[in-house]
Design a protein around this nucleic acid. Sequence first.
DNA 1: ACGAGCGCCTGTCGGC
DNA 2: TGCCGACAGGCGCTCG
Length: 266
Amino acid sequence: MPELPEVETIVRRLRKDLIGRKIESADLLWDRTLVTPKPAHFKKNIVGQSIDSVKRRAKYIVLPLSVDTLIIHLRMSGDILIRKDGEAIHKHDRLILHLSDGHYLAFSNMRKFGRVWFTPNPEDVLGKLGPEPLSDDFTAETLYKRLKNHKRQLKPLLLDQHFLAGMGNIYTDEALHLADLHPLSKSDLIRWKQAEILWRSIRKVLEEGIRQNGASIDWIYRGGDFQNYLHVYGRKDEPCFKCGTPIQKTMVGQRGTHFCPQCQKF
DNA sequence: ACGAGCGCCTGTCGGC
DNA sequence: TGCCGACAGGCGCTCG
């Protein structure tokens, strides 16, 4: 489900509900959700810690607590819901945190790919991530230099969280189309001008995604509207908005990949 | 270093 | 209608 704009949307909502709340108890409903520590240690030590802030790093939700840090990755099908005490838990809830204000936090995760870390050292989890695409120090020059450091297909490289942290399948397809770049183009062959346009395109699709509160696709609806602004993703066989050529769908790095064969030449 | 293939999971959709 | 494979917003692993 979530890429950077969807996670940012969730984080902004959680900020209103969670800051200052104390965690009174935790129920782990699917043990493999928790990467570290052991469930018993987790359930014992999280009790009594309060939530100091709600942050995002790439696609990770980061909750600095009074002592440790709780980190959540939603992967494909995760979401975070806040419900009132007494409301029934849902079928796909994997972790419940009971809060001090009469609500509980539910980590819903149908496909069970999502993961949670509870650690005193958040850098162990987040330390190897690439640059944050919307931060001030991610410049067009930065992107250009990093592209030149690899000889890789553009799309898998943009999806590599060590290269750039936060892009996912939808926003990568959209950014490459906006920049008129083929998903299989080799990164070291990108010219400066193209890199600058790609940099601007990445920022633009992410910012617009956040402005629209993310994309709501399939059965999971969270109120975002970016699905109405997609130019290639999910538009196989429909005309390119720039040139009218039917959008093609192929597989690149085992991911469905949408592009315009006219605008995005190899 | 790079890319392909697979595993992890549950659910939906399209084709036969 | 029912079955069955393909596919889904992610990522870590192995292998060549």
